[in-house]
């Protein structure tokens, strides 16, 4: 996305012209500075207040006294299980969809256009609506109740558009020379895809998966009424479990005196997301796709 930079500064003769130039420059620098400063404020605040509460035992111990004591061991465990359910459904579904969408060389079949439009709408669906849907469909109609499974499946629906979009980009980015070479060697479409295209696209495909993990980790509203609140370590996928983000919400809003532990948990979550951000960048770099970003959703 980082296009060329344009140096358009010109030496200016009159004073009358310098005034708007000067004020625009000041305004733009101040706006950018404000954004960066606020972000820095948030990150430093999380780090300063969070790290003082952090210790290795915090990551392992169970949640005690509604979270005011103990650690976040079961919460981390539940989060991991939810993510695994999410990826187990979302990866195959999105890969297959991306394959179908990139099937035609000229890209723009009506089928692909309509599928993409549906996915665009899906990407815009508010997360609380995913919560309503997951609650009505997975929890009640399919009888899965408030559970890891319900939460994971709901999140899978939510990350699907991002994962499909990134997979599609990864597949399209494989140089056509590979496809021509494979075709000239008499490989059929599926052999070309599985033997040549997908292996070449692997780093970028991975980057999409990592990005989706980030989105899923950040999600709260869709989980409250699907995976639920229970802070115990889940025994099975049909048990309720609390994700990191839900834990932060609960500690901040519902537990008097939970603020400092909420900060510690937020610190863990943000650290995980920073690691994910760095991994995505590295993977895209490895795939030669650096500089591609996908607009965010909190």
């Amino acid at each position: 996305m980082s296009g060329g930079r344009f140096h358009a500064s010109a030496t200016t003769p009159t004073r009358r012209h310098q005034i708007p130039e000067f004020f625009t420059a000041v305004a733009v620098w101040m706006a950018a500075g404000l954004v960066v400063a606020t972000l820095a404020w948030i990150l430093i605040d999380i780090a300063v207040r969070g790290i003082s509460q952090l210790s290795p035992s915090f990551l392992i111990e169970g949640v005690e006294d509604a979270g005011r004591a103990g650690g976040i061991g079961p919460v981390l465990f539940s989060t991991m299980l939810i993510l695994m359910v999410t990826l187990a459904l979302a990866i195959p579904l999105s890969l297959a969809t991306a394959i179908a969408l990139t099937e035609r060389v000229d890209q723009d079949s009506r089928f692909a256009r309509n599928v993409r439009r549906c996915l665009d709408v899906l990407a815009g669906v508010p997360s609380i609506v995913f919560g309503l849907f997951g609650n009505a469909f997975f929890a009640i109609m399919l009888g899965l109740g408030y559970s890891i499974l319900t939460g994971g499946l709901t999140l899978a629906c939510m990350v699907l558009p991002i994962l499909i979009r990134t997979s599609e980009q990864a597949i399209v980015a494989v140089p056509n020379e590979y496809r021509y070479a494979a075709a000239a060697l008499g490989l059929g479409r599926s052999a070309t895809l599985f033997r040549v295209v997908l292996p070449a696209a692997a780093p970028a495909l991975m980057a999409g998966v990592v990005l989706s993990i980030g989105r899923a980790l950040a999600e709260t509203a869709a989980l409250i009424f699907t995976a639920g609140y229970v802070a115990r370590r889940p025994e099975s996928l049909l048990d309720s479990g609390r994700s990191l983000s839900v834990h932060i919400y609960d500690m901040a809003m519902n537990v008097p005196g939970g603020g400092s532990r909420a900060y510690a948990t937020a610190c863990v979550l943000v650290a995980l997301l920073l690691a994910i951000n760095a991994t995505t960048t590295l993977l895209l770099h490895a795939a030669g796709l650096q500089g591609r970003s996908v607009g965010g959703k909190g």
Partner: peptide
């Protein structure tokens, strides 16, 4: 400019519940 873009992308990835916590406290 490169770092600015990177920061903006980072901002996009921060969970809303963390924004909420910061706003609250």
């Amino acid at each position: 400019a490169i770092w600015h873009r990177r920061l903006i992308e980072l901002l996009a990835g921060i969970p809303s519940v963390v924004f909420g916590l910061w706003g609250l406290v």
